[in-house]
């Protein structure tokens, strides 16, 4: 399935390491890429995260959102900084959510996916929830605005 990364409207070449299923990867831990099912416990990777370049998280269907939680735990709690790929054929309408949860590459065969990816980060200029993408939340912006207004008034 075509692979997309932010910044490119066309699919990119998939020439990285081939991810191994978690159980196999645990046997020798030589690969730098691991493929998780959405029922796998991501915290089991914790001691070895630094050696990983790619983790794939799976969306067996559009409506199964378990991998969003896995992604946030990997990024926010465990501090994983390598590539985080959404597999299973994701749709463009998932992109604003996927990006906010820390995914940075995507498998998709949907027509128009690449163009949608270019626009996905700006589709919503406002976010309410703090996540690892570091975007200031509405609450944070309001507080900033308030302190600017207050100091201007003094």
């Amino acid at each position: 399935m075509p692979l997309f990364r932010e910044g490119s409207a066309t699919p990119v070449v998939n020439d990285g390491p081939v991810p191994m299923p978690l159980a196999e990867w645990f046997k020798d831990r030589s690969s730098t890429a691991v493929a998780l099912a959405n029922t796998d416990d991501v915290t089991s990777l914790q001691p070895r995260l630094a050696g990983l370049a790619l983790i794939t998280l799976h969306f067996p269907k559009f409506s199964d959102g378990r991998a969003y939680s896995q992604a946030r735990i990997l990024r926010e709690r465990l501090g994983y900084r390598g590539e985080l790929r959404a597999t299973g054929g994701v749709l463009q309408d998932q992109l604003p959510f996927l990006l906010r949860c820390g995914f940075d590459s995507f498998e998709s065969d949907q027509k128009g996916f690449g163009e949608a990816l270019l626009k996905a980060r700006t589709l919503f200029s406002v976010v309410y929830q703090p996540t690892e993408d570091g975007r200031p939340t509405v609450s944070q912006l309001r507080l900033q605005h308030r302190s600017v207004t207050l100091s201007a008034a003094q």
Partner: peptide, 13 residues
């Protein structure tokens, strides 16, 4: 309401 609106993690429960 604000926190739950377009929540990136909890839109496909």
């Amino acid at each position: 309401r604000q926190w739950s609106t377009l929540h990136p993690e909890f839109s496909f429960l």
